[in-house]
Design a protein around this nucleic acid. Structure first.
Lengths: 207, 207
DNA sequence: CAACATACAAACAAGGCTGTATGTTAGTTT
DNA sequence: AAACTAACATACAGCCTTGTTTGTATGTTG
């Protein structure tokens, strides 16, 4: 039953799609490889041919997500008089739009949010943490630039501004994904970003 | 080996403490009941006597956390001219302080954050979601009151203000717990709350 | 103090799942 | 076209776990 290279790629893709569905419905922990195999119309043999084990399968699921081009964004922020807030807000909006329209991303991120990230999956978590760290550094640098331009309100530090932005976006996404997506994340997220960025510029109002 | 009632309560408590440690270190999914039993110095028989199964054990772990007295807070907010922002900010600070000082709470919340909440643990997640819903309603009502007092900035609605607050606190706690607690959550949290509540009052600055 | 219930320990039964090893067929290469 | 290898299917060994059941000694109650 030797298949051609193209057919094998197709099989691999089917397995990934099946894993996405099955893991999303039953949870990573409670779905067996057999479940995934059946859903993909193959046997476990095929899965173990293409993937080392379940953790690897989940990792490849994560890797299958196209990530935003960070270098592009970085370049936009390079200019001396770059509109930092404008760029960051737009990037945030684009991320939310991407999430809102890409059901694969929704399912895969849901899977990762709900799965037990200890033991075998620690590697995946670390990977995400590393990415988070990079994002934080980039954000901090961006806000520092805004501060240099005199655009960051006095109450804020680059770090606090970056943290707040991350917490809001993470909280927004997590709640939407884990909670049945019962609101319009694109529009509510846009509003939230609007309000958040509006506060970055304002100098601390006295209370 | 029949123990007295008091000794049995003690055993139960030991099991809970052991479960907390073991689940925290190995993750709920990868720790066996035998592991917990050994750590508690009993056999699985004792655990199954006190708890129906693993999910029940985790649930009881969650239930063992003293929760903030919401009625007290609600009563504080009842007064016609209550200082809504002041109360909410203080409550938020108190919550963060409680988390910062109570290691049991840290471990148990970490366990719940990291554990796969599908299947057998769906009940626990739903429980948390229900609590979250209640909190949201209370928060919305509080911000609505502030709005009635003319204290809520024009850019905000009660719902958006409540959502933002929840996202920030959740993001803060999640990052601190999942990320090795490598910052001072009490002080950084206090700062974040300070900045956040400062923005609630200010009327939308033009950008 | 007898009868009963409690608080466990210890043994049991059964299963599901993982990883691997082997088998098989059909591309691919030379 | 022979030799080789990729792409799976199938079979297997084994393990760990869970839930339950039985045993038992000790409080507890009437």
């Amino acid at each position: 039953m030797r298949r051609t290279k193209a057919e094998a790629k197709e099989t691999r893709q089917q397995i990934l799609l099946a894993a996405e569905r099955v893991f999303y419905e039953k949870g990573v922990a409670h779905a067996s490889m057999e479940d995934v195999a059946r859903a993909a119309g193959v046997t476990r043999g095929a899965i173990y041919w293409h993937f080392a084990n379940r953790a690897d399968l989940v990792l490849e699921l994560y890797n299958s997500l196209p990530m935003p081009q960070e270098e592009l964004i970085a370049r936009e922020l390079e200019a001396e008089n770059a509109d930092v807030f404008g760029v960051l807000e737009r990037v945030g909006r684009e991320w939310l739009d991407m999430l809102a329209t890409d059901e694969h991303r929704q399912r895969i991120l849901s899977i990762l949010l709900r799965c037990d990230n200890t033991g075998e999956f620690a590697a995946i978590s670390e990977r995400q943490n590393d990415l988070d760290d990079e994002h934080m550094q980039a954000l901090e640098a961006a806000f520092a630039k805004a501060q240099g331009q005199g655009k960051l309100g006095g109450a804020w530090t680059p770090r606090s501004a970056a943290s707040m932005l991350r917490w809001v976006i993470k909280g927004l996404c997590a709640e939407w994904l884990l909670f049945g997506r019962r609101f319009d994340i694109a529009s509510e997220g846009k509003d939230a970003l609007r309000r958040l960025f509006a506060t970055y510029g304002s100098h601390a109002p006295s209370t």
